[in-house]
Simulated scan of single mutants.
Amino acid sequence: MAEDFSNEPIVSAPMDYPQHERTYAGFLWLVKYGSIAIVAILLAMLASLIGSWGILGGLFVFIASGAVLAYVLS
């Protein structure tokens, strides 16, 4: 009736550490460039909607801030 629950680790499935490292690297890449895109979009919205730059100014700020942020964070 009572089963033997020992504290032994399960060794039936070995871990694929290179795959885990590639997945983690991909996750970090996505977080990094996703954050850059969000900040660039917010700065473009700030320039075009609140400032007097208009749509072309917002597009310029989006491209310039995205490039600067990608350069700084790489």
Rank of each mutant, 00 (worst) to 15 (best):
S74N: 14
S74C: 11
F27K: 13
H20K: 14
V68D: 03
S12T: 06
T23D: 15
P9L: 07
E8L: 15
S6T: 10
L28Y: 13
G57S: 04
M15P: 14
I63A: 08
L59P: 00
A40S: 14
I10C: 09
A70I: 04
F5N: 14
V31S: 04
S35D: 06
T23K: 11
G34K: 03
W53P: 00
W29V: 08
G26D: 13
P14K: 05
A47K: 00
L28Q: 11
A2V: 14
A2F: 13
W29K: 07
V72S: 06
A13Y: 10
A64I: 06
D4S: 07
Y71H: 07
I63G: 03
L28F: 11
F5P: 06
T23M: 13
A47S: 11
L43R: 05
D16N: 14
P9H: 04
A25C: 00
P18E: 07
V11E: 14
G54F: 13
D16T: 05
V72R: 06
I38V: 14
S6W: 06
F5I: 12
A44Y: 02
H20C: 15
S74H: 07
V31M: 14
V68I: 10
Y17R: 12
E21Y: 07
E8R: 06
S52V: 11
L28W: 10
R22F: 12
G34I: 01
V72A: 09
I36F: 03
P14Q: 02
L28T: 11
R22K: 09
Q19H: 07
Q19V: 09
I10N: 10
A2P: 12
A2Y: 08
I63C: 05
M15F: 15
M45P: 01
S35T: 11
S6F: 09
P18F: 03
L59E: 01
G58E: 01
A64N: 03
V39I: 11
A37W: 00
A40M: 08
W53Y: 15
T23W: 08
G58T: 02
L43H: 04
L43K: 02
M1A: 15
L46G: 08
V31N: 03
K32P: 03
S6C: 09
V39Y: 02
G66Y: 03
R22A: 12
W53R: 05
D4P: 03
S52E: 10
L28V: 10
A44N: 05
Y24K: 08
D16V: 01
S6L: 12
I38G: 12
V31C: 10
F60I: 10
F60A: 09
G58H: 00
G58I: 04
L28M: 12
R22D: 15
I63W: 05
A47P: 01
L28G: 08
D4A: 08
L42V: 07
I10A: 09
V61D: 00
E3S: 15
G58S: 03
A67T: 08
D4W: 04
G66E: 01
E21G: 01
A13W: 10
I41G: 13
F5Q: 11
L42T: 01
Y71C: 04
V72E: 05
T23C: 06
G51H: 08
G51W: 08
A25T: 00
